[in-house]
Write a protein that binds this DNA or RNA. Structure first.
Lengths: 196, 196
DNA sequence: TATATACTTGAGTGATCACTCAAGAAACCC
DNA sequence: GGGTTTCTTGAGTGATCACTCAAGTATATA
């Protein structure tokens, strides 16, 4: 009986993610979405309910993709190499609508207004941090990283540096690839126990 | 002949800086500014011309204050100690309207639209980076940091890590003070020449 | 005190915001 | 092909956006 929608929902979410990632929450108007998704307001609201609801789907999609990219990197090159290559990979992606992390952009934009999407972004960041921690732990098990480190502390610092790198990569005139290389080199030093 | 304005312009800019710093460019409406500065639209536009013009003044004020705080820290404790204490100082300021750097928030929000204020923020970040570089250089001259490092590279990395720290400090459930301490500890290792 | 010169007021501007909904079109089952 | 159901259309909603301006008010000099 029913009529099928003539769009691919996943594809729409992906396009919305790119728009939101690039321009942010307030910076992406419904006109932008209508143009980017080729949808009239009626269809849009029938499909997603609200701008915020779509933004949440976009965030989820963004976070999922990030974790999947890291997971594949670890599978193909091992945990330490994955952590070392991930920063350069992330800022080197030419197709990405922005260099900075969408989760951090969302957090910085919406945190002050206590917008629920800020906490959603924070939760996705937490998941990512957990994945980093797992990889650090695996690298310790395999002997690539000294066991006297706390993997959660390493992950916390790694994520912070990664967020900084991605902010820096958004700037003009900053050699972000060089910073990424330094982060990778720093991880190599973890094969030895801490100096202090 | 003329009538004096019944406000302190510097005080208004400071209050505007806090509003913009906290809520961002799009997130701060003219109603917010009217309420925060206790000005009617007419006075506001007579005094500042536009929202963007005031934002630029606020950015300038923000950057000036940051450089002044670092300068004082260096004067009182020396270049290396200043660089070590600065991260903790910045995220520990309870009165600040946000933990994250206003320059990076502006950059992330407006860069995608090629808004002139994004480039203004980038220029202020460059100045700050230059100040970091000078302090690293002074620390090398005084022997606190090994002379085989390039002060500009150290500054670039330091600023990137600092930006990351300040994004992390904006999050709930992240011990940013611990990250700041790690950054400070990392600088201590620079008294020795690089490992590789 | 008179007058000139700002500054202050606040209702009002058109534009854009996210969003709605009634009507028409398309795809499914029988 | 008829009937049902969903999707699509696009003009239109009130709210809010940054901003304007004519009128009123306060302060300076003469």
């Amino acid at each position: 009986m029913p009529r099928k929608p003539n769009y691919d929902r996943d594809d729409l979410i992906e396009r919305a993610r790119d728009l939101f990632w690039r321009s942010g929450w307030a910076g992406t108007s419904l006109k932008d979405l209508e143009a980017g998704l080729q949808m009239k307001p009626g269809s849009f609201y029938a499909a997603f309910g609200s701008k915020d609801a779509l933004f949440e789907l976009a965030l989820e999609r963004y976070a999922l993709d990030g974790r999947e990219r890291l997971r594949r990197l670890a599978r193909d090159h091992g945990p330490l190499a994955a952590l070392q290559q991930f920063p350069a990979l992330v800022i080197g992606n030419k197709e990405a609508p922005a260099k900075a992390c969408m989760l951090s952009k969302t957090l910085l934009e919406l945190q002050a207004h206590n917008h629920p999407l800020a906490e959603t972004a924070n939760l996705h960041l937490l998941k990512m941090e957990g994945q980093f921690s797992e990889l650090f732990e695996q690298a310790q098990s395999s002997g690539e990283i000294d066991k006297s480190y706390d993997s959660r502390i390493l992950a916390r610092r790694y994520q912070s540096d990664l967020l900084g790198l991605r902010v820096s990569a958004e700037r003009n005139g900053v050699d972000a690839a060089a910073i990424a290389a330094e982060i990778a080199r720093g991880l190599s030093a973890l094969s030895n126990p801490p100096l202090a």
